[in-house]
Design a protein around this nucleic acid. Structure first.
Lengths: 129, 129, 129, 129
DNA sequence: GTGGTCTAGACCACC
DNA sequence: GTGGTCTAGACCACC
């Protein structure tokens, strides 16, 4: 999977990395159980610091997206993620709220906004087939 | 309008403040042209530093949400925001992408996800009447 | 002469007022010896504070653009301004330097830039006839 | 590049700093992609507060003159600035108008005035070779 | 070591 | 009384 880091973004590199791995899992580009590159290899590949990759992997592990084994390295969680529970949904909602508020202020109407949401959703799910 | 700061959150205080003001504008709780509290008053009210409020106001001003007059203080922009252009839509999309990816990983289906989007959207627009 | 105040500008109102009176003198719209409105009248007219008009008049008087008489009020200097001396030219230059630097960074070429300068200059002088 | 702050000036320190960096870029003294001193180093160097330097850097970043990377510090924008558009030209014009008006009042004639403009322009461009 | 955030406190410009 | 500027100093996130 191709990972692109934007060094000028004010999104921290480890967050960009985390997001792209989650996006890869959502789109099916990263399969359950699939091995991820070693911390060392990925850091070298992207030209970033070991600690940065480590921090991303640690976050992903803590949230259950990946497993990290001492010898075998990191792999995509082999079994499905736990389904969305209330805690997850409420976190999702509070992340989306300010974004949606801006869309409303900029007068995107409901249909237009939902189209965009649907398009983003399908961007991930259509490629899973 | 009631503003609530979560001091435990890792979202910076000035961002929380910025978001809540945008949300107030989206919901119609803050009307066009309505005066906002002075930086000092709001800082005292929230028990935070005046510079932190200032930073939020400065961001809001730069993005056109509010106007700041030298001695009359801050006002909600009296006229409507410029409508969503391509730059805005693409920024919106890149903010939403990682959030949606997580929802997909957590197996929220499309209808469920879009319901949530619709609910958040309507949370703002239904109260405008 | 019509004076327009932009309350949203971050240029202080008294500076806007000062500038517009100087521009009126440059364009010939304000003639030498011509009376200016009283502080009180102009403040009422523009809906601004007495002190603000006062500050503008004081600045203009200090730089020799106008005269202020106790009884007769303010008038445009009846005789011509002292010609540009070295002090004036060097002040002018230091005000223009950062503006020109930005134009260079934005890759306005010399002809284009000088055209703009000429146009602004003539905007004032053509109306003097 | 030598930066000189005039503490007596009524131009705010952060504006003086901003202007001098833009002037350095215009003259070619600061090259595209060149690193700028860290906020702390520059603050110490100039004997001013780190927040003052930060404010200048933040302004320069917002207007696209420099890039700020989380840990590599600030760099001069590596690629050329976007060319002057209408918005830029009209901002330039309104900044120049009051300055030109004063020159007219002080009876600088057109040739003299344009010579000065040309000289300032060339002051920046001749050194780029 | 870099910038980002936050606090506390001061003085000034503006009106 | 309002925001604007500046200082001093602290802790944190990032790498």
């Amino acid at each position: 999977m191709l990972i692109q880091i934007d060094y000028q973004s004010d999104v921290p590199i480890y967050v960009q990395l985390t997001n792209q791995i989650i996006e890869g899992m959502a789109s099916g580009e990263l399969k359950p159980g699939e091995p991820l590159p070693s911390v060392r290899a990925l850091a070298a590949d992207l030209g970033i610091n070991l600690h940065t990759v480590n921090k991303a992997y640690t976050h992903l592990k803590q949230e259950g997206f990946i497993q990290v084994h001492r010898q075998r390295g990191a792999l995509v969680r082999p079994d499905p993620m736990p389904p969305a529970d209330e805690a997850f949904r409420s976190r999702l909602e509070s992340q989306m709220r300010p974004i949606v508020a801006e869309a409303v202020c900029r007068r995107m109407d409901e249909a237009d906004f939902l189209d965009m949401c649907r398009r983003i959703y399908r961007h991930f799910t259509k490629e899973e087939s």
